[in-house]
Design a protein around this nucleic acid. Structure first.
Length: 606
RNA sequence: GGGGCGUUAGCUCAGUCGGUCAGAGCAGCGGACUCAUAAUCCGUCGGUCGUGGGUUCAAGCCCCACACGCCCUACCA
């Protein structure tokens, strides 16, 4: 029996520049939820946090383009994203946002202590400013003529035509992408995170993680590799949207803000603190952050590895005074470094990358509205980009839904309930179990170990495949025992035994599948005579900011009623009525409809 | 340009330490069955493991080169 642990599920913060597409939830949303649900069922003390990432230049630029303030812009998008994730069933203890007063306080505390310990150092930097706004102009927001190939729409960081890396100062006729004016190149002071001073501590930590053998090989290799040419990185910007520098620095430099990534990763901590404050136990977050026995898992897409295996650990090490310059921890103490950075790859669509800007995209909202959460969660779990880029096609989406979810699992549920309803109307008591009954019960019960072990090691595709293989074994049990032929009075006991065995197997499989398909699990539970809600779902709740009083929606939930990860005997005598199907087949025409929709969307948007 | 990851059956993907590793699901084909959403179960067809070299008694697996795809390359997030 595994000992109960405190487990932090730290889920990547969606950028609040619009609704989420399939690639986003395939990368971090569904995998983190499956893992967290399983760990709760296995008896661990899980805290799952995330929120909307709402600062940074792109949001500022998009808000301007939409004629709204950045605050209005992120208020809208945060609400949209929170609703999507709720409807997808992602069971956060708290899904909040980076524009809370609490977050500002926590971020400034980390900045202040890193500064005091000497890991944030001021340095002059050559930057481009937009003369129209006075804001830092990131390289990619400068356009001009490529000095290499002459392409007139080259970006400051890269030329999309010839593919060469560029420096914006080399562009011919550079202009701001937002105002059209030529940028002014000037020198300004910014605070740099002294990563070289933290590199030894980072390497020690990463080598320990490598020795654990638990990280995905590409993630640990990449993380170690980027240590080799580590350099200080600027953690402030000249911009008027973001978290101000703390204390006197803020007064001295009112036009500077903290770099969006400096604050975004701190969200894991600030959300944990906000959660603790909201439940009225303001120190409870320390169970996951200060207890060295706690396990902390970070879920994200592969483009975010550097921020989770380098920047965020460096911020925590600097805060604790654990780099080459020494220092003391601040009021939050020594914070736990990630146990595991669980990075997924990319989901492509019909062979090409998602592109919101080109309209080549499938939004989570649309899939939820048209097909519900179960088919989507099933597809992502069965065919998602766990270890390498994976391809989404509508044809495979329909096929997986119809031939696996509906025909395999849904049909087993349905035929089981139908036979019990017709013959008994309630779960019958078994007589003596035959060898074949014992065998199938054992095969299913073993599933808790095999599937659970795979889930523990973030092998969700293999875990779901194993669960579905067991579904197939139970379907075979029906073929072998032929309960539909047991019609005579003298066969009544045998029929009762087979159907009791069958519904026990279905109940167990429903438990095993619950992390993947929580909504369906509740409906299956009802179909086979269960009472009440089987597994908890998250709720969208309007709250007010603990410090500023502003209202905003969060995702939260009470997950104390999570069922255990083991066989629970079905209740003899529980009523079972003629079932209505839990899963519905999708018509093949869906494929053409969706492809047409995609093609129709494609050229329109800018 | 530099660093990294990937390429396995018609499709989507597993393959841990080099040694029953040529695998699964779906699609196709054949059969069984009828409780169930024409669902289920069994059998079967199908691959020069991206290309070219190399190491080894033995190579999807290790090494080198190349092709293609993707990620990162520090001011997009």
């Amino acid at each position: 029996m595994r000992r109960m642990s405190n487990v932090l599920s730290a889920v990547a913060w969606p950028y609040a520049n619009g609704p989420r597409h399939l690639g986003h939830v395939a990368g971090f949303g569904v995998p983190s939820d499956v893992f967290s649900r399983f760990m709760r069922m296995a008896g661990h003390n899980v805290l799952m946090v995330s929120g909307s990432d709402e600062h940074g230049t792109p949001i500022l630029v998009m808000a301007d383009a939409n004629g709204v303030t950045p605050e209005e812009f992120v208020d809208t998008n945060h609400a949209i994203i929170a609703r999507e994730l709720t409807d997808l069933g992602c069971a956060y203890d708290l899904y909040t946002r980076t524009t809370t007063a609490n977050h500002t306080t926590v971020v400034q505390e980390l900045f202040t202590q890193n500064l005091a310990n000497g890991y944030l150092v001021p340095q002059p930097q050559q930057v481009a400013l937009d003369p129209a706004t006075g804001r830092t102009l990131p390289d990619r927001y400068i356009e001009g003529t490529c000095p290499i190939c002459g392409y007139t729409e080259a970006r400051g960081d890269q030329c999309d035509n010839c593919g060469n890396q560029l420096d914006p100062i080399d562009l011919i006729d550079p202009r701001s992408k937002t105002s059209g004016q030529p940028p002014t190149f000037t020198e300004t002071q910014h605070w740099f995170l002294d990563l070289p001073a933290l590199a030894d501590a980072l390497r020690t930590w990463l080598e320990g993680r490598e020795a654990s053998g638990t990280w995905r090989p590409n993630v640990i290799k990449f993380s170690l590799n980027i240590l080799d040419d580590i350099r200080p990185r600027a953690m402030t910007r000249d911009i008027d949207w973001g978290i101000p520098l703390p204390g006197e620095l803020g007064e001295q430099y009112p036009t500077k803000r903290l770099y969006v990534w400096f604050d975004a990763v701190i969200g894991y901590l600030s959300a944990s603190i906000e959660w603790a404050r909201r439940i009225g136990e303001p120190e409870r977050w320390r169970d996951w952050w200060n207890d060295p026995e706690a396990l902390t898992y970070y879920f994200m897409g592969k483009d975010n590895i550097t921020f989770h295996s380098q920047i965020w650990p460096a911020e925590m090490l600097g805060y604790a005074g654990k780099g080459n310059k020494g220092g003391e921890p601040g009021q939050y103490g020594t914070l736990n470094l990630p146990t595991e950075v669980v990075s997924s790859e990319y989901l492509t669509m019909e062979g090409k990358q998602f592109s919101t800007s080109r309209g080549y995209v499938i939004h989570v909202r649309d899939v939820l509205d048209r097909y519900g959460p179960d088919p989507l969660r099933y597809f992502i779990c069965a065919a998602g980009p766990e270890n390498q880029d994976a391809n989404f096609t509508w044809a495979e989406f329909v096929q997986r839904n119809n031939s696996e979810l509906v025909a395999g699992w849904g049909n087993l549920v349905n035929r089981t309930a139908a036979m019990i309803a017709k013959n008994f109307g309630e779960i019958p008591a078994p007589a003596g179990l035959a060898e074949i009954d014992e065998a199938v019960l054992k095969a299913v019960e073993t599933g808790f170990d095999t599937v659970g072990d795979l889930l523990t090691h973030h092998r969700q595709k293999a875990a779901l495949a194993e669960a579905m293989r067991v579904v197939s074994e139970v379907n075979k049990y029906v073929t072998d025992t032929e309960p539909f032929k047991l019609k005579g009075d003298d066969q009544r006991e045998r029929l009762a035994t087979v159907l009791h065995t069958l519904v026990q197997c279905v109940s167990d499989l429903n438990t095993i599948l619950a992390p993947f398909l929580p909504h369906a699990a509740n409906r299956v539970h009802a179909v086979i005579g269960g009472r009440g809600q089987f597994t908890p779902l998250p709720e969208l709740r309007d709250v007010t900011d603990l410090d500023s009083g502003k209202a905003y929606p969060v995702i939260t939930g009470d997950y104390t009623s999570t069922p255990p990860w083991r066989r629970v005997p079905v209740e003899i005598g529980a009523a079972i009525a003629k079932p209505t199907p839990v899963f519905v087949k999708l018509d093949e025409s869906v494929v053409e409809e969706e492809l047409a929709r995609l093609a129709g969307d494609s050229p329109a948007q800018a």
